[in-house]
Amino acid sequence: MAPGDLAILFLSLKVAAVAAIAGLPPAVLAAWALARGRFPGRNLLDAALHLPLVIPPVATGFVLLVLFGRRGLLGPALEKVGIVFAFDWTGAALAAGIMAFPLMVRPIRLSIEAIDAEVEEAARTLGAGPLARFARIVLPLSAPGIGAGLVLGFARALGEFGATITFVAAIPGETLTLPAAIYAAVQTPGGETRAAVLCVASAVLAVVAVLAADVVGRAAGRFR
């Protein structure tokens, strides 16, 4: 790989890591609300969280551009306090995180639903409040799902293309991630070799992510 390709690889890893780590706390809370909550609009919340899976990624990127673009609804106000998403790597992380969010919520929710409700009820009768039950029972027992959701979110964010390129374009050194670089290489005459190298790099990262998910799952299972 050329030095420029290594920079693309490192940028992609940074974007995916930030997207997965930043998205994990809200994913855990959303999974807990869906698994244990009984409130009006629960089904609507469930549907809204899964929207990135069913609508075109380009549509998600366009919505982000309307909201957080330099002339968007929230972009100018955020820019005044030093927060910039449009055409910046932080915007790539935001787009990738939103696209990965449903895949993070799902395994965490299943892990929480697998916890015997009588365990939490016993803790409640012993005086444990909702926060204590969440921190001392739900989080430890759902650790395998949390670990799997984190790795799955990282892998999904690493391969995100449609929403990212719509929202932040493909600026070399700033927002040019692996999927965008592969697309650009395919569109360039004689760029098939470079595209193949980048595809191999993406495949290697995907295999590593799958192996990491298995290791994390086993470790979380032992912790549990």
Rank of each mutant, 00 (worst) to 15 (best):
M1R: 07
G4D: 15
L9S: 06
F10D: 05
F10R: 15
V15S: 03
G23F: 14
P25W: 09
V28F: 12
G37Q: 07
P40E: 10
P40D: 04
N43V: 11
L45C: 12
L49D: 03
P52M: 01
L53I: 15
V54H: 06
V66S: 06
L67C: 06
G69A: 00
L73D: 01
V81M: 09
V84P: 05
D88A: 12
A92R: 07
L94M: 14
P102H: 06
V105Q: 09
V105N: 06
R106L: 14
P107E: 12
R109M: 14
S111V: 04
E113I: 02
A114D: 10
A114H: 08
A117Y: 00
A117G: 11
V119D: 00
G129T: 13
A132T: 15
F134L: 13
A135W: 12
L139W: 14
P140F: 08
P144T: 12
I146T: 10
I146C: 02
A148F: 02
L150N: 04
L152R: 03
A155R: 03
A155M: 14
R156I: 07
L158A: 14
E160N: 10
G162Q: 04
T166S: 10
V168F: 02
V168N: 00
G173S: 03
T175R: 05
L178C: 06
V186Q: 12
T188M: 13
T188G: 09
T193P: 00
R194C: 01
R194A: 15
V197Y: 11
C199Q: 08
A201H: 00
S202T: 09
V204Q: 06
V207A: 15
A219C: 14
F223E: 09
F223Q: 10
F223D: 01
F223A: 15
F223K: 09
R224P: 04
